[in-house]
Amino acid sequence: MGYVYLALAIVCEVIGTTALKSSDGFTRLGPSLVVVAGYGLSFYLFGQVLKTIPMGVAYAIWAGLGIVLIALAGVIVHKQFLDFPAMLGMGLIVAGVAVINIFSKTVVR
């Protein structure tokens, strides 16, 4: 269940962060409420994750996938542009998360 909770935590965090841009500095109520709910649920779920997955591994997955998904949300929702160096850097982050999950002995299987 740890990886299911981690996936849900990441999705909630991505929703919260995407809404953060839309909140316009917390001046718009609807998106601001989504930010608070998204982050609140995300941190609750991440707390559950840490019961079964080592903290460093869980955070690496959280951060790596979160960066990529938030960048994609920025492209889709906010029409932001990613240049080649940005995409390359994100690819390296994903590769690092893959190395951790494939080769690390600290990953719970």
Rank of each mutant, 00 (worst) to 15 (best):
L41K: 04
I67G: 03
S23P: 05
G96L: 07
P54W: 15
S22N: 06
P31S: 01
S22V: 00
G56M: 09
V11F: 12
Q48L: 15
P54D: 15
L72V: 14
L45N: 13
A19V: 07
G25W: 05
I102L: 14
V14S: 06
L69S: 04
A71C: 05
G64T: 10
L82H: 08
V99T: 12
S23D: 13
A9M: 07
A9S: 14
I67R: 04
M87T: 04
V77I: 11
H78Q: 05
S104W: 14
G74C: 11
L6V: 02
E13V: 10
D83M: 07
F26M: 12
A58K: 13
F103R: 14
V11R: 00
I102N: 09
W62S: 01
G2T: 01
F46C: 11
Y5I: 06
A60W: 00
T18S: 15
S32H: 04
V107R: 11
M1S: 12
L88F: 11
F26S: 06
Y59L: 06
I102S: 04
P31C: 00
I93Q: 00
V11K: 00
N101C: 14
V75K: 06
P31F: 05
E13Y: 02
F46P: 06
S32W: 01
L41A: 10
D83G: 11
A60Y: 04
M87L: 14
Y39H: 02
M87W: 13
V97G: 01
I10M: 00
V36R: 15
M55W: 05
G25L: 01
Y5Q: 10
